[in-house]
């Protein structure tokens, strides 16, 4: 059981760490690349969104690599 717990917590920690790094990228550079509406949005909104971005990075990271349709 302890092995399962250790693996789970390492996976969770890794997920959170990547999320935090992605969140920092979002804060300072990536926000407008993910969503053009962020271009005209106040900077403090990015800070509010930071925890959610860190939590859902696997979904958002896909948007960076999706070819633009326009």
């Amino acid at each position: 059981m302890e092995i399962i717990i250790t693996i789970f917590l390492i996976a969770l920690g890794t997920y959170v760490l990547i999320g935090l790094l992605f969140g920092l990228y979002f804060l300072f550079k990536g926000a407008a690349k993910i969503d053009p509406l962020m271009q005209d949005t106040k900077k403090r909104v990015r800070f509010l969104l930071f925890p959610g971005v860190a939590a859902t990075w696997p979904f958002l990271i896909r948007k960076l690599f999706k070819p633009k349709t326009t």
Binding site: M38, L48, P51, A55
Partner: peptide, 16 residues
Amino acid sequence: LFVMASTSHDFFLGNL
């Protein structure tokens, strides 16, 4: 609850 609260914004509705 953290994931839910932190994504309670229209940004996430549009982008997720």
